[in-house]
Write a protein that binds this DNA or RNA. Structure first.
Lengths: 194, 194
DNA sequence: GTCTATAAGCGGATAGAC
DNA sequence: GTCTATCCGCTTATAGAC
């Protein structure tokens, strides 16, 4: 049931597994609590289902980072995709943020397996760009962390961003200014001087 | 009671207010649940006390950003202070992250008041550096967000960083490499070309 | 599949002895 | 100040009718 997963994502992304209440999820999804438990037998199983559904969207943007592209294009594309994801799926971003803050009890196998393998491949890509003189020498892990941090910030800390600026990424002009600022600083920061 | 506040910080920074359990806090602090409630009459009051105690450490680094410094020095100092804070007080960082992810229900007045005023002043500082030609033209709000995001990431996502790299900021060498990478990219990204 | 009713247990908070 | 015992509401989960 899609309505349940959407309601559960909104709840879990805010309160984590322990702080979430299945009666709130049931109400938001428009059914009774026992009926929700007919589809997902326990709260934990529902949490796992929500995590799993969001996983693909989380890994995909990095997968598309193409070693054959020019690094300027590849990094610009990655930042653009990640910011777009923060705009269209802020709750997915916050779900993973909360899960990781709690020590990633459910996501740890994915971090250690699928994500670690993917990151290793992209670290090699970044190293090859540096070796080819197309990128300033920067630690690839820290570069990836910077890309994640700067783009996910607009989803994870949206409440703070909104309070301080009056805007969020749903604002097209604000989205464009965020993209321009992140692209500008990061690309100037990692591309070799002409 | 300092032991209580420390134990409560560890719990709240992980699980948020709703997901935290006062019996876990009491056990970690080495006293009984009723005895904990003798010092803090409700869970919410304890949460407010922990937030308040952590607040100063959260605002202080930004306050020290000195408009009279050279921007390269000022920004380097700010990044260094923030990274140091992520190292020495990762739970404080995560406490605010969880609170903001949940929509900042308790911190909102601080965001709207004290933080907003402080940010406005620092935005003016950044604008003055740009007007003086000492800084590339970059949106000051987005620059601040980038500084927060890149430095707090090592505290807030420490579990992920640890799984992917095997290190955290407690490692002196890792701390140094993170500092060098962030400093390098951000400073090259915002300082005008010589 | 969906509901009402309810069991079973957890968790916040209090009473009262020491 | 600190504890044991306990109350009571809330939350997850089940039973069972429709």
């Amino acid at each position: 049931m899609l309505r349940i997963l959407d309601a559960a994502l909104a709840e879990f992304a805010r309160y984590g597994l322990g702080g979430s209440r299945i009666d709130r999820i049931a109400a938001a999804a428009g059914l009774s609590k026992p009926n929700l438990l007919y589809y997902f037998r326990t709260k934990e199983l529902l949490y796992r289902a929500v995590l799993e559904r969001t996983l693909a969207m989380w890994l995909e943007p990095l997968r598309e980072l193409d070693p054959d592209d020019d690094p300027a294009d590849a990094l610009a594309g990655y930042i653009t995709r990640k910011l777009h994801y923060s705009r269209t799926h802020p709750e997915g971003s916050r779900l993973f943020a909360v899960e990781v803050i709690q020590g990633a009890p459910y996501l740890e196998p994915v971090l250690r397996g699928e994500l670690a393998a993917l990151v290793e491949a992209k670290v090699a890509t970044i190293r090859s760009w540096i070796a080819a003189g197309k990128l300033a020498p920067v630690d690839p892990y820290h570069l990836l962390f910077m890309l994640w941090a700067t783009t996910q910030h607009y989803a994870d800390f949206a409440a703070q961003v909104r309070t301080l600026t009056g805007h969020d990424l749903a604002d097209e002009a604000f989205h464009a200014s965020a993209r321009e600022a992140v692209l500008g600083v990061v690309l100037r920061g990692v591309l070799p001087r002409p």
